[in-house]
Amino acid sequence: MQIKRHIPNIITLLNLFSGCIALLFVSLHKYEYVFFFVCLGIFLDFFDGFFARLFQVQSPLGLQLDSLADMVTSGVVPGYVMFQLIFEYQAVGFFTSEPYFPSNYILPLLGFAITLGSCYRLAKFNIDTRQTDSFIGLPTPANALLILSLPLVIATSSSDFIVSSLVNPYVLIGISFLSAYLLNAEIPLFSLKIKNFTVAKYKIQLIFLVLTILLLVFFHIAGIPLVILTYVLLSVIHNKMNRITV
């Protein structure tokens, strides 16, 4: 029984460890490895809660530990990635690059708006009783995938318009602040958890699943940010339709 009690927390710490490895790869500009280790951390994040419920060992310690691990994997890592992207592209026709802090670092630091927004969201989530079965605002793992897909889209996209947009530091800064807003916006997002499945009850989830598959098949890596945005847009539409029918 003692071993079972520690399994969820060990999994949570492995999530944190994955985030730490991802940070190392951010500093090396190996964004495909960053994406992999954050995905691994998100996978582990799902299973720590699963085993906590399975073994009936949920605890306040586990809740706080989970948030602290997520803060690194889904908060610090995407903020650092955005910092690196803005730093890398700020000299491409927009700013002159100088070898000292004020001119080179001040704009890239705005990328950490993602980290600040993630921290605030995680703190709110821990005390918000409305988010037991669904989310209000974009979850930090989904936001992390959105941000971490950007350098992969830049590297693989054949569209000059998409690439030129994503290497524009103003666009990246705008995405950073939009990300911080979506994390904390009072937008109810439909639950992705399936209980007592029926087509009528989970119609919106099935639509989202079909759209996700289509976006990933046709757009590959570029489909990831589209999937996250589709999730938000479908939730907004779903909320409005529910208000009309009530």
Rank of each mutant, 00 (worst) to 15 (best):
G174Y: 11
I194T: 08
T198I: 04
S158Y: 15
I207M: 04
L206R: 11
Y181P: 02
A180N: 12
L206C: 14
I207W: 10
V167Y: 06
I187N: 09
A200W: 14
S149E: 05
A185L: 07
Q205T: 14
I194S: 05
S149F: 04
F190G: 10
I187F: 06
L152Q: 03
V163I: 03
L178K: 00
S164E: 14
I173V: 15
N168L: 07
I175S: 10
L172P: 09
K195Y: 08
S158I: 12
T156H: 09
P169C: 05
L189M: 01
L152G: 02
L148T: 13
A185N: 11
A155D: 10
V153S: 06
K193C: 12
S159Y: 13
I175L: 04
S176T: 08
V163H: 01
L148V: 11
S165F: 12
F190Y: 09
S149L: 04
Y181L: 14
Y170E: 09
S159L: 07
V171T: 13
Y202H: 15
T198R: 15
I173H: 12
L183V: 11
S176H: 02
P151Y: 08
L183A: 14
V171R: 08
F177G: 06
K193G: 06
N196Y: 01
N168G: 05
L183I: 09
A200I: 14
L182G: 00
A185W: 08
L183H: 03
I162M: 08
V163N: 02
P151V: 05
T198S: 15
P169S: 13
L182T: 04
I147F: 12
L150Q: 02
A200Q: 15
P188T: 03
I207R: 06
L192W: 04
S149Y: 04
I204T: 15
